[in-house]
């Protein structure tokens, strides 16, 4: 480019105006921001949220307290104890503690579960007001996930 051309380009602020044209065009484009507490974006189908325990169609718990998830876990989230009742076919958990504050949501527990009892929910609100709320006991594990929506957040499990 000639020197005069460069001078004119520089004098008439062509580089600046090109940039301002972009910002002006995008100022009038569709907004992409989601205003979070009012609008909530639906997580994806495979979203790795809080893990929860499931029951089968008859309402029987699926967990057989085999502790496969406890062994697979790299951060020691689980503390599980099982007991076989008189006349029962399989073991059932008597204690199932899961520590939300230790979980890295890697998914190893879900992948190793032989009965598909432990699965990810799509619950992503993980905050709590005290540390005790981050420790999930057996009843909380069935509660976790979609049922938690009635609570303000997963950590404290206090009603809205």
């Amino acid at each position: 480019m000639s020197r005069i051309g460069r001078f004119l380009k520089s004098f008439f602020l062509v580089d600046m105006l090109r940039g301002l044209a972009v910002t002006l065009r995008l100022y009038f484009s569709r907004k992409v921001t989601v205003q979070y507490p009012e609008q909530v974006q639906e997580p994806a189908e495979r979203f790795r949220g809080i893990v929860r325990l499931y029951r089968d169609d008859k309402g029987e718990p699926l967990c057989i307290a085999c502790k496969a998830c406890q062994r697979a876990c790299g951060t020691n989230c689980f503390d599980i104890e099982g007991k076989k009742e008189e006349g029962a076919k399989v073991m059932r958990p008597t204690k199932f503690d899961w520590k939300l504050d230790r979980c890295t949501f890697c998914g190893f527990c879900v992948e190793v579960c032989p009965t598909n009892a432990i699965r990810f929910s799509r619950e992503f609100r993980l905050t709590g007001t005290d540390k005790d709320g981050l420790l999930f006991h057996l009843p909380d594990m069935y509660l976790a996930g979609e049922d938690l929506q009635s609570y303000l957040c997963a950590g404290c499990r206090r009603p809205r």
Binding site: P43, A44, E45, R46, F47, R48, T104, F105, C106, G107, E111, F120
Partner: peptide
């Protein structure tokens, strides 16, 4: 997120292959 359920700390590769 659609592929493996996480956005930042993805853990999207397993030893021997891929999860999905």
């Amino acid at each position: 997120e659609e592929y493996c359920g996480a956005r930042l700390t993805i853990h999207g590769i397993r030893i021997g292959g891929v999860p999905h």
